[in-house]
Design a protein around this nucleic acid. Sequence first.
DNA 1: GCAGTCTATCCACATCTATCGATACATCCA
DNA 2: TGGATGTATCGATAGATGTGGATAGACTGC
Lengths: 123, 123
Amino acid sequence: MPATSPPPPLLLADADCCIPLGVDPLDDDSAQQLAHAFKALADPVRLRLLSIIAAAPSGEVCACDLTAPVAKSQPTVSHHLKVLREAGLVASRKHGTWVHYRAVPEQLAALRQVLALDPVSAP
Amino acid sequence: MPATSPPPPLLLADADCCIPLGVDPLDDDSAQQLAHAFKALADPVRLRLLSIIAAAPSGEVCACDLTAPVAKSQPTVSHHLKVLREAGLVASRKHGTWVHYRAVPEQLAALRQVLALDPVSAP
DNA sequence: GCAGTCTATCCACATCTATCGATACATCCA
DNA sequence: TGGATGTATCGATAGATGTGGATAGACTGC
């Protein structure tokens, strides 16, 4: 049923949850959002998928070219891509039968900023 | 039995697994190590603990002051601190009966570097 | 020594998650 | 229109993980 639309990828850049860890203790809500984002990175298959996508010269990679490098089944790769998409780390674009994935630099930058200890070292 | 010593915290800075994601696709071993580190960050309680430790003015926090802020039991907090310690994100120091925890900036910097897309933006 | 306190470990349990076969959906082409 | 292909979803299952009570170990002060 289309009553419940798919949850939009949470954009950390828009939230107030990206204060460097060393500056202010996290409140509970921010910690929940950040944990969700880091959870998407907490799997070797997803890290490899993200690195393949991010390192692509064209900036985009067809999903059909992602199953072989990670040596997983097509449903498994699709599941991991969904997790990365819902975490806002990648974005997808339909191109006929194929789906092309690209990295979202803003989300990666937001996570980098959180891992900083002082406010100045955050780019 | 003390035959098996506790595993040392894996130091990403010493490994060759900290190449920015956008530069080179990750090999399987590097992905495993990185996933282990990000897994430590993939829990809201651990993120809050790490932020409290990293934001401490003295640079250290007694474990006895960490149970109340996160509203978890002492065994649970001890477990999460162990995960952070084994991931190399915090270090501990015994001070009599108490144990003081401090953040490990090098490990956080290594993870930040991985989340970069281009080699120059890595500090 | 002994009681009290702080920390880590052990154990059990509920929940979450990665994985893959089967299948549905969407699109293209003949 | 029908077959082929790429992708997403469903269902089931094995393994990982968060949580806390009970308990052991370490240290302090009396």
